[in-house]
Design a protein around this nucleic acid. Structure first.
Lengths: 206, 206
DNA sequence: CGGATCTCTGGACAGTCGTCAAGACTTCCT
DNA sequence: AGGAAGTCTTGACGACTGTCCAGAGATCCG
């Protein structure tokens, strides 16, 4: 008896979660295209296969929807450069691969990243976003830290910066390149690659 | 005849420009408090001593108002660290002063800076903001470059990074510290000071 | 003073927004 | 089959948005 209802309710819960995720994906697509300020629930619904009312069936309000989107987005980011870390055999190889991967991400995932920066900025104003944003930021910092520590190990030199400094520095390069790339400045992503390539060794002790 | 009308019209033009500036100041205060997404013209007017209709007497539309605000904001930024550059006599002194000034700015001008990052982010989505944002960004890059080149001169070593890399790196540290500071993370600005202090020498050739 | 020009107010407008609820449709179990 | 539960659509609501405009008030001139 309880087994059956459990199975049912679990299936329903799964379906519920699945649809939430599906709607969040539509929302992320819309948000990355329009930005937080110009994205409405009706617009999100129009970019999905449902009507606008359904959003309030799966999400309490707009904040919960956006929050769910942010959490879902996070899952994509975490492992972005892990393969590079795992397959790296030399410091020089890792350095080149990472620099190139940054540039590629900036080129091909520009819309998603401008959304991340947009939401991170909303957290500067709206308190309700801060917890999730800081959590993602921490995850990204750890992701960069995995790259940097592996690089240091392979180079056989100790690191000269803290995790947050390493992340802040590289994130600054990325932000700048993203702006220029989206503004149509030629060579923006190549310069990002070069700058990252140039910066990595500076994080090590001389 | 023409002299008189010229004088009059010039005075009117000055008065016109003065009121524009006054309204832009109110707008900047409101924007820095609420962020771009939540700032309306009525809210701006309410934070000034005029009614909402007057905004369309002095500005064609919302975009022109915001653009004017951004330009006006720029004037404040340009010379922010110039005094430090001028009065510096040793590399170590400049390094300490600049690191401390960054932290102070982050602490005391947090609202204005989150607005800058907000508007810079809007430029990632809205093409009409890009020209002004890129122009300001260039100005900030030059400001940082003045600091960094002076530091290199005083240290007697050549620089190892491009202007845009130097700006990107330091701006990244600042952005990160701003988020943590506004989120109430204790010691965020102190860590910014330490990180900048630690980073400056890495911009020089070994 | 009186008329012209500049400045400002306050209301109206057409849209859009987030939210909600009534009801139709679907799915599932007994 | 039939009812219960879950899912989705549609239309409505009040509030808010940017924009415009008629007209009041202020200022300046001859």
């Amino acid at each position: 008896m309880t087994e059956v209802t459990d199975r049912i309710s679990r299936r329903q819960v799964d379906k519920f979660a699945e649809r939430r995720s599906q709607l969040a994906t539509s929302a992320l697509r819309t948000l990355s295209e329009l930005g937080y300020a110009r994205t409405s629930l009706r617009e999100i619904a129009q970019n999905s296969e449902f009507s606008h009312g359904v959003l309030h069936y799966y999400f309490r309000d707009k904040v919960e929807l956006i929050t769910h989107c942010v959490r879902q987005y996070k899952a994509e980011c975490v492992t972005r450069y892990d393969e590079i870390v795992v397959t790296a055999t030399t410091a020089e190889g890792l350095r080149a691969d990472f620099a190139e991967a940054l540039a590629t991400t900036c080129r091909e995932d520009a819309s998603m990243h401008r959304l991340w920066y947009d939401l991170r900025n909303q957290a500067l104003f709206e308190e309700s976003f801060r917890k999730d944003v800081l959590e993602i930021d921490q995850t990204l910092e750890l992701m960069i830290w995995r790259v940097v520590t592996t690089y240091a190990d392979l180079a056989g030199k100790p690191l000269a910066v803290t995790p947050s400094t390493a992340y802040g520095l590289l994130d600054g390069l990325f932000t700048q390149a993203l702006l220029r790339h989206l503004a149509g400045v030629p060579g923006a992503t190549e310069e990002l690659s070069a700058a990252a390539h140039q910066t990595l060794p500076k994080l090590l002790q001389p």
